Simulated assay, not measured.
Amino acid sequence: MLLQLKDTGELVKILEIQELLDPNNDVVHARQQEGEEEQPPNSFKKENLVFPSGEVLPRCWLDAEYRHGNG
């Protein structure tokens, strides 16, 4: 899955989708998509990521206290 860094607009490829979906993790491991060479994995805070469309990540991926239907 590709996401985008809010501040630079660079694309990153998420390595473990479960890590992204787990609201108890505030960091995910991904590879920046620069040029043709595969980049080494790096850590990124979920709060700094958005979908390539600019849409923010779902709250249930970010907030472990979030409950569907409450709020």
Rank of each mutant, 00 (worst) to 15 (best):
Q39I: 05
N48I: 05
E10F: 02
Q4P: 07
P52T: 13
L21H: 01
W61V: 05
Q4H: 11
Q32F: 00
D26F: 02
K13D: 13
P23F: 05
W61G: 05
H68L: 10
Q39G: 07
E55A: 15
R31Y: 08
I17Q: 15
G54Q: 14
E36K: 09
P41D: 10
L15Q: 13
E19Q: 10
L5A: 15
E55F: 07
A30W: 06
E34R: 11
V12L: 13
E10V: 01
L21N: 05
Q33G: 02
H68C: 13
V27M: 15
K46C: 03
N48P: 06
L21W: 04
R59N: 03
N24Y: 10
H29C: 08
A64L: 03
E19F: 01
P40Y: 02
S43N: 12
K13I: 13
K6W: 00
A64D: 02
K13W: 14
L62F: 01
M1F: 05
L15A: 10
E10W: 02
S53P: 07
N42R: 12
E36I: 08
G69A: 12
P40K: 09
R67S: 07
F44M: 08
M1H: 13
K45Q: 11
N48K: 11
V56W: 04
Q18F: 07
E36V: 05
L57K: 05
G69I: 13
E65C: 04
L57F: 03
K13A: 15
E65K: 03
L57T: 06
S43Q: 12
Q18S: 09
Y66L: 02
L20C: 12
Q18A: 10
D26I: 01
W61H: 00
A30N: 09
D22M: 04
D63P: 01
V12P: 14
A30H: 10
A64I: 01
E10R: 10
E36T: 08
Q18C: 05
D63Q: 03
V56M: 09
R67G: 00
F44N: 06
L5M: 14
N24K: 11
S43Y: 09
E36W: 08
L15W: 03
E16C: 10
W61C: 08
P58N: 08
V50Y: 01
P52Q: 12
L2H: 08
K45I: 01
V27N: 12
M1G: 15
E37R: 07
D26K: 05
E34I: 03
N48E: 13
D26S: 10
V12F: 14
V27F: 12
V50F: 06
A30M: 10
Q33F: 07
P40L: 09
Q32H: 06
P40E: 12
R59W: 06
